[in-house]
Computed example of a mutant assay.
Amino acid sequence: MVASAKAIGQARATLADEVRGEIERMIVDGDLAAGEKLNELALSSAMGVSRGTVREAIRSLADSGLIDLVANRGAFVHETTLEEVRNLYDLRGAIFAMACANSARRVAEGTEPALAEALEKNLALMETSHDDAKAYYSLNIAFHNMLLNGAGNPRAKSMYDNVVREMHLFRRRGLSLVTNIAQSLEEHRAISDAVAAGDAEEARRAAERHITSGFERYIKIVENDDAGASD
């Protein structure tokens, strides 16, 4: 009986984890918009699970930065403030710059012999996807992940993933225009070239420029949206 209860508990926890992952994907992909209330009944029906399982999954997301639990009102997709955006970009920039520098150093040392070629292949795919923001966004994530993995610092990668997970709420807006994609691609090329050359300091500078430019692109889009709303 004890073993059976334990197995049931493990199965329930696993199911809640799967539901959590699906809700997280829906938020990251934009299927659930910022500020939107999470409807437990609708989600449970769509996923074929109980409302209790959905509720458990939602509660487990409370510390992710993706949702807000409001007393007597329910759970809502988090709406980021401009100050939060700035802080997240600053934190992401520090980790990413370090990772690019470390990746370049490891390429120079021969520790990451396949990284330069992998980055080059990713860039080639980006160049053919520059008019498809969704495809480019996925390749963009892969490019950054290659560099974080190449840095050989699992703890930094974990911290970076947590920051980026929250940033998905607004980062897509920064790559919503073809001109922005072209600039982003140029910045990726500079990072890739520095890493391939084993130039740690240039890789760090190129990474810092890339993250700073990403924030500037986001601010311009927000300002343009605000101006349009006031017309």
Rank of each mutant, 00 (worst) to 15 (best):
Lys37Thr: 01
Leu125Met: 11
Ser64Arg: 02
Met146Val: 03
Val28Met: 12
Glu216Tyr: 02
His168Asn: 00
Tyr160Thr: 01
Arg106Phe: 08
His78Trp: 04
Ser64Glu: 03
Ser4Gln: 14
Val195Met: 06
Thr128Met: 15
Ala207Met: 11
Glu186Thr: 07
Val222Trp: 01
Gly110Ile: 10
Ala62Met: 09
Arg86Ile: 02
Glu56Pro: 01
Ala200Ser: 13
Asn153Cys: 11
Glu186Trp: 03
Leu148Gln: 01
Asp131Arg: 14
Asp193Met: 11
Asp225Met: 12
Val107Asp: 05
Arg205Lys: 14
Asp90Val: 04
Leu43Cys: 05
His188Gln: 10
Leu177Val: 03
Val2Arg: 10
Ala190Pro: 03
Val54His: 07
Phe215Gly: 07
Ala156Tyr: 07
Leu88Tyr: 10
Leu43Asp: 01
Ile95Leu: 15
Tyr89Pro: 01
Glu223Ile: 10
Glu40Tyr: 03
Pro113Val: 12
Glu120His: 04
Glu208Met: 12
Thr14Ile: 12
Ser129Ala: 15
Ala194His: 10
Ala116Phe: 03
Lys6Tyr: 04
Thr80Asn: 04
Val19Thr: 06
Ile67Cys: 02
Glu127Leu: 12
Glu84Ser: 09
Arg173Tyr: 03
Ile141Pro: 01
Pro154Ser: 06
Arg205Met: 14
Ala142Ser: 13
Ala5Pro: 00
Ser64Met: 01
Gly21Trp: 03
Phe96Asp: 12
Leu125Tyr: 03
Leu115Tyr: 03
Asp31Trp: 06
Ala124Gln: 15
